[in-house]
Amino acid sequence: MQNEYHVKRILKTALPILTFASLLGIASGLVLDTYGDFLLISPGILMLVPVMIGMGGNLGSILGARITSALHLGIVELRLTDPLLRNNVLATIIVGVISFFAVGVFGQLFCILFGFESPGLVNMILISSVSGFLLTLIIVFTTILLAFMSYGYGFDPDDTTIPMVTSICDVFGILALFGVMMVVL
């Protein structure tokens, strides 16, 4: 059997997109660092950072994988009345709303279990749900746009959509979390 995978070839494809993703990652780190003092006062919210980033990435990659499969099958079109697009958008929003509500509930539980200072159950749920909802809308919009654009320009959307969406989610996830936190607290 011939050797299909070669270190050099994989590195050549992956490194440019990983470097781009790193730049976006640093950008979200800068947002995090800007609100650092605020965060260190509220460890309960600091605790939500990895899970907000992670959930944003999960939702984006699931939607991305589904849209790219549909593009490859040729059964989806970029218009508001497309049934597959509509179902995917609706399902992502439903899953997003429930998951980010769960982030608030479990977040509060973890604060109690591990003795972190928390802004209270209602505020935790409010902050995670509202920022999660905003993030979900951003994810839906950017994922669909990137998948269709990649496909339109002749790139395999599987290679481009997921790494770009997860990185973009990081920046907006942290921005949404702090934006909403500042309004609520």
Partner: peptide
């Protein structure tokens, strides 16, 4: 150090997801 946190978490997902 805080600047690095999201980037490190994110690249784990990108590299090992791929």
């Amino acid at each position: 150090l805080l600047v690095l946190v999201p980037a490190i978490l994110d690249t784990r997902g990108n590299i090992f997801g791929a």
